[in-house]
Amino acid sequence: MDTTDMDNRFTEQCGGEEFLRRISKRIYENALPVHVKKGGILIQKGEKTQYAYYVISGAMYVRSEFLDGNIYQFSVLKKGSIVSDIEVLSGTFINAATLVVAEDVSALRIPVKLFAEELKTNIDFLYYVSSQIASKMHASSYDRGQNLFKRGIQKTVIYLISSYEKDEDENEIVKIKKTRPVIASEIGISVETLNRAVKFLKNQNQITIIRGKITINETQFQGLIDFAEKDALY
Rank of each mutant, 00 (worst) to 15 (best):
T219L: 15
S130G: 03
Q146V: 14
I82Y: 12
G40E: 08
K150G: 02
D85W: 10
K25Y: 09
T208P: 00
S185M: 01
V105Y: 10
M137Y: 11
L148A: 08
I187R: 01
Y28W: 11
A139H: 14
Y164Q: 03
P33G: 02
V112N: 04
F200A: 08
V191Y: 14
D143R: 15
S57T: 03
G46S: 06
F200W: 13
Q13P: 03
S24G: 10
R109N: 04
L224F: 04
I209Y: 15
Q50M: 08
Q73K: 15
Y28H: 11
L201V: 00
E172Y: 15
F74N: 01
E87W: 01
I41A: 00
I158P: 00
N30Y: 10
E65C: 13
K37W: 05
P111D: 02
K199M: 06
K120I: 05
L108S: 03
I27G: 07
A31N: 05
A134Y: 12
K25D: 07
G40P: 07
R22D: 06
L194Q: 10
A116V: 04
F66M: 07
K79S: 08
L148C: 07
N122T: 09
E17A: 15
R9D: 04
V198N: 00
K150C: 05
M1R: 13
N205E: 12
Q13W: 08
